[in-house]
């Protein structure tokens, strides 16, 4: 459980995070979305106390991260795959972190096996690929068997197999009742992994909704129809609440009717339908729609300031 209240972070004049309030609940995967530079990483850094908020506060399971006696057991974080000394081996890196809080040696080996770094565990991290570094970062995040996981762009640099593995890992962890907070700019990835979304743009909260609601809200009820009798169908469909536009010969865009209703009307009038496609906005499109608004909003604010 992560609880952020009125979080603000300024770097000089620049407001990186602007009055963010949200909760991240246990047992589900919560996606943290926003375009590059929207304040996702800064927010995550504030959760584990790397950066101090300019205003506001954030707690993990009721306490500031630094006030937990066993921080690694409370929160596991992957903020940057490169938060590692390049001259140390992967195993030694994990051993060094484990030592701070009394995590047994055996667990370090278990995690090295889990993330698939067994063969390179005694090699210096400097020679690791981005994907291997990411796997080491995930092993260090899981080290303390934490109740909460915070992962900043965990699929960066991973191959498709690795991405699938992360997706399963996150869902498995959520299944065990842990709190999973994962940022990404890959909307398609979030659609497959997350249950809930927190969307920010320019440091401000834009949406705090379930993935299903988010997609539903954003999708218009537009239906694409292809028929040889476009003119006749159009005349039949058009009405007070129904808009029909002919996009090209034989093609119509209908707003205000479901595809079922259109199909029924066509059948009742013996009009052949070659294509009937309800347009469901993808998470990607919904996200672009939302963040574009936020950018415009902020531009206006700036102009008036």
């Amino acid at each position: 459980m992560i609880d952020a209240r009125g979080l603000v972070k300024c770097y000089g004049d620049k407001v990186a995070v602007d009055d963010l309030t949200f909760e991240v609940k246990p047992g589900i995967v919560t996606g943290f979305l926003g375009p590059n530079g929207s304040g996702k990483s800064t927010t995550m850094r504030m959760i584990i106390g790397l950066d101090a908020p300019t205003k506001g506060s954030v707690t993990v399971n009721g306490r500031a991260y630094a006030d937990h006696p066993a921080p690694l057991h409370e929160v596991g974080a992957l903020l940057e795959a490169r938060a590692v000394h390049t001259g140390r081996s992967a195993r030694n890196h994990l051993m060094v972190l484990a030592a701070t809080t009394g995590i047994p040696k055996r667990r370090v080996d278990d995690l090295i096996d889990l993330v698939g770094l067994t063969d390179v565990a005694s090699k210096r991290v400097g020679g690791f690929s981005l994907g291997m570094g990411q796997r080491l970062g995930i092993a260090s995040a899981l080290l303390g068997d934490p109740a909460t996981l915070i992962l900043d762009e965990p699929v960066n640099g991973l191959d498709p197999e690795g991405i699938l593995w992360i997706r399963n890992l996150l869902r498995s962890l959520a299944h065990e009742g842990r709190t999973i907070f994962v940022s990404s700019h890959l909307m398609s990835e979030m659609a497959l992994t997350a249950d809930h979304l927190i969307v920010i743009g320019r440091g401000r909260l834009i949406a705090d909704v379930s993935v299903a609601d988010f997609t539903r809200q954003a999708s218009s009820d537009l239906v694409n129809v292809r028929t040889p009798e476009a003119e006749r169908l159009r005349a039949l469909l058009v009405g007070n609440t129904v808009h029909v536009t002919a996009t090209s010969p034989g093609r119509l865009e209908v707003i205000g009717l479901t595809s079922d209703e259109i199909g029924d009307i066509a059948q009742a009038n013996s009009i052949a339908i070659h294509e009937l496609v309800p347009h469901q906005a993808s998470l990607e499109e919904a996200f672009m729609e939302l963040t574009r608004d936020s950018v415009e909003y902020h531009t206006t604010v700036r102009a008036s300031a």
Binding site: I28, A70, R107, D110, D145, N168, R171, T193
Partner: peptide, 24 residues
Amino acid sequence: STIELLSPIAIPMMSADESAKLRV
């Protein structure tokens, strides 16, 4: 959850005994 778990990954857990001793 709207997405099914395809192949759950077994994450090594710590025993309650072990995790109770964790402390910086």
